[in-house]
Amino acid sequence: MIPMLLYAQDEVGHVSDELIEEIARRVGVTPLQVNEVLTYYSMLHRKPLGKYHVQICTNISCLLWDADKLWEQACHKLGIGHKEATGDGQISLEEVECIGACSWAPAVQVNYDFHHFVTSEKLDQLLDGLRKKQ
């Protein structure tokens, strides 16, 4: 059920009520059971995120390369906070736990794409690019 939820979310953008109903029907459980499972997993979202979901890791290995400053920079630049999206729905932000890129820290993930050795300048360019990207 977990991959089904994630792949469905990739298509719809978030786990909507309709999606829960549909998955419950296909798996043969109640919508409540689907909801019970999905609330456990941090990658599954009940609310729409931005088209580009920017996930900044601030866990220990990234923190040692000043990832907390990158996080503050991104919040400031976009005017949004943790799990919030810009008004046009283009970009959302999330401070995430270790994404498994510790030796190439600090690391940022945009949707499923990894960005390694992120500097302040690189983050600026990345966010500017995402603002314009279709």
């Binding site: 866990n59 220990i60 290995s61 736990e97 270790c98 498994g100 890129a101 510790c102 030796s103 190439w104």
Partner: peptide, 11 residues
């Protein structure tokens, strides 16, 4: 499910 902070080898 490599998630232990500091670990990126299974990748």
């Amino acid at each position: 499910d490599e998630s232990e902070p500091g670990t990126c080898k299974d990748r």
